[in-house]
Design a protein around this nucleic acid. Structure first.
Lengths: 197, 197
DNA sequence: CGTTTGTAGTTAGCCTCCTAACTATATCCG
DNA sequence: CGGATATAGTTAGGAGGCTAACTACAAACG
């Protein structure tokens, strides 16, 4: 639900009209942009509703998934392959989930309060903590995940397999390109005209 | 930035492995789902960074766009066509932006504090307020929008026109279907197979 | 005409995100 | 060895989401 976007997307003729006043407005790009955000938001909202029923926000779910991965490996043969061991410390979790360490502190706080997670001091480096799932969290995941998987499958069910492949590849083109414009990929924007007023 | 999602998407073989343990896990659906959210998040983040430079969050931007539309019409010929007059009251704005009235109160509070918006009582119905953009907001939009349009165009630039059409149509299939699973579209689910377990 | 019902906006309290600054510990290096 | 630098985690304060409950007004209806 966090995206918050115009519920009704503008009609294409409105975009064309806007392009007359703003030469920088690319109507088809704008349309893709808005549809991407709108659809992402809707899909996100449907998936989140299920988690909310279990008192789990998306952020908390991400943390549980990151920590649960190794617990999961416990069940699987040790030869299960390249699924890496998964993060343990708040800093690693923050990095993997794409939030700040401060945010992760808050998430772990509430997860710990709800008995889903335990903090343990690292014996080797006294700056560090180790975060572990409790048995309660493990049980919760076991009941929550099948629903979550069914919801994902249902959301994507209108697409055939070839359509799915196409969609992923188109999204990937955008994602790859967007990453280069991103905070990390902060190339100096070079060519941009001095505009901006 | 709000989506918060695993930065590194799981490899497909991990999804396949997961499907062995969870029969409900549809690997290709899962892959589409994750790519959609991840790409939406990235694109959203890039676009938001520009707004943030002007001290405008996405929520505030939505409000400004909704209110600015009519101001925009002022410049355009009255015959401009089917671009409706745009919302004016907090309740209408909340509905159009897809947030609660309480949230809209907060957004208008900060916008008013920053001098971008004015509240005026409705003379006919003393429960209602009318929200208007200030001249300052109008100026801000004029300087902010061209950048915003350029960023959208850049984000989508890796796709050709036919690819854009395809992408929008695939996204639309998902969006239409998702809406039927949604809170508002709470049709009694009737025809839906009894599945869902 | 007065009571009930509904609607607009706000308030209060919670959660999750952020940035900036702080504390404690580890490490590097002169 | 000892100071500068870097890192882990937290804290403080702010914004923007939410729900639930409240106030004020309008409308409906018996």
């Amino acid at each position: 639900m966090p995206l918050l976007l115009l519920k009704e997307l503008p009609r294409y003729e409105c975009l064309l009209a806007g392009a007359k006043e703003f030469p920088d407005l690319d109507p088809s790009a704008c349309e893709v942009f808005l549809h991407l955000l709108r659809t992402g938001d809707e899909v996100f909202g449907v998936a989140e509703r299920n988690l909310t029923d279990h008192n789990i926000s998306h952020g908390r779910f991400s943390v549980l998934m990151l920590l649960w991965n190794p617990a999961h490996r416990r069940v699987m043969p040790a030869s299960a392959g390249p699924c890496v061991p998964g993060p343990r410390t708040p800093a690693e979790l923050a990095e993997a989930a794409g939030v700040t360490r401060a945010t992760m502190t808050g998430l772990i706080d509430t997860l710990e309060r709800d008995g889903l997670v335990r903090r343990e001091p690292d014996p080797d480096d006294r700056r560090m903590m180790s975060v572990r799932l409790t048995a309660k969290a493990d049980t919760l995941m076991q009941t929550m995940l099948p629903d979550h998987f069914r919801i994902m499958a249902r959301l994507i069910s209108p697409l055939s397999e070839p359509e799915r492949t196409t969609l992923v590849s188109l999204l990937n083109k955008i994602l790859q390109h967007a990453s280069t414009l991103s905070p990390a990929g902060a190339l100096p924007v070079e060519i941009q005209e001095p505009a901006l007023r």
